[in-house]
């Protein structure tokens, strides 16, 4: 049977193998992704982000168990940073999801960021498609909420939950830039801890100051370890989902995502083409010239780009 057919029938091993191919050799994986495309678009994708230790994996586990009771099929993408020096990573989110691993309607995949520029959101999007084509109805993406690349990744989601916890010191400071804006629902986890009320006031203040959105994001209190607030949280996700559909906002988000996907794919193809055409020797040549102060890097790249452009126009 074809790999894509096996995936559509929910074959875990086939799906897992294709995900590996997406990570290791995207050019080759595209062949299979093409076959899956028409079976995608059914799943709802929920992003869960926030600082390390805020309880993302715990909340993902609890939400997953809650949804399993309704009978929906689930997949989880758990992203952790890779070491920029060795490329290695310890992917430990499954520690909080142990009892989910033998539920055959739950598929969990841990992913290292592998330091790919722009590549992570592209491969995450492909992983979402594979899980979608498998018939998973709700797909969670867990990723640490710091840094530009993580924000790019989480934008692959339909709805984004931003987790915060009391006692992060100068709470909001940590996440003020860029990340507050992407949260559709604010989750104050570890609300068994001191400082919860203060944190909520801070979030409310922040939102009233900065936010230009039509709908003010809900703030939901949870205690992940005790399974408190999970039902309320899921109700809010469903409510928001309906709201976004009604307002046409969901459609808009999906459209933006396709646009970004095309952009990412284009960039990768052209990048490869460009460097193949120019060749390492020519680049080394320019480096030497810059070292000797014969040319500046701006003019050097401009020159190489011109050569490339001429070649394209000629139709080579």
């Amino acid at each position: 049977m074809k790999l894509s057919d096996r995936i559509r029938q929910g074959d875990t091993r086939a799906a897992a193998k294709l995900i590996t191919m997406v990570e290791n050799d995207f050019q080759q994986a595209q062949k299979y992704l093409k076959e899956l495309q028409e079976y995608c678009g059914q799943a709802t994708v929920i992003g869960i982000t926030g600082p390390p230790g805020s309880g993302k994996s715990t909340i993902t586990d609890r939400l997953a168990k809650h949804i399993r009771k309704i009978g929906k099929k689930i997949a989880i993408i758990a992203i952790d940073p890779s070491s920029p020096f060795t490329g290695g990573a310890i992917l430990g989110d499954r520690i909080r999801m142990q009892d989910l691993s033998t539920d055959k309607d739950v598929f969990i995949r841990s992913i290292g960021t592998r330091g790919q520029l722009g590549g992570l959101s592209r491969s995450t999007q492909a992983v979402v498609k594979i899980m979608d084509a498998m018939g998973k109805e709700i797909i969670f993406i867990e990723t640490v909420g710091v840094g530009q690349s993580e924000i790019e990744v989480i934008k692959v989601s339909d709805i984004i939950l931003l987790l915060l916890m009391p006692g992060m010191g100068d709470d909001i400071q940590i996440i003020k830039a860029g990340i507050m804006e992407i949260g559709d629902i604010f989750v104050v986890n570890k609300s068994d801890r001191e400082g919860t009320d203060r944190l909520i006031v801070e979030i409310e203040m922040m939102l009233s100051l900065n936010d230009v959105r039509k709908r003010n994001p809900a703030i939901i209190k949870t205690i992940g370890t005790e399974n408190i607030g999970i039902e309320e949280l899921w109700q809010e996700v469903e409510r928001l989902n309906v709201y976004l559909q009604d307002k046409g906002e969901m459609q808009l988000r999906r459209k933006n995502r396709i646009r970004k996907e095309i952009h990412d794919l284009f960039l990768e193809n052209w990048q490869e083409l460009f460097f193949q055409f120019i060749g390492e020797d020519n680049i080394e040549n320019e480096v030497q010239k810059i070292l000797k102060q014969d040319i500046d890097p701006y003019s050097a790249v401009q020159k190489l780009t011109e050569v490339f452009k001429k070649q394209i126009i000629k139709g080579g």
């Binding site: 070491s83 142990q98 995949r109």
Partner: peptide, 26 residues
């Protein structure tokens, strides 16, 4: 990890079923 590998770490008290299922998914 320091040798450049990706290590999936699942914590204590895993049953053989959990280990095999995790290995396949990952």
């Amino acid at each position: 990890r320091d040798a450049g590998m990706e290590v999936i770490y699942t914590g204590l008290r895993q049953t053989p079923e959990q280990i095999v299922e995790t290995a396949i998914q990952e």
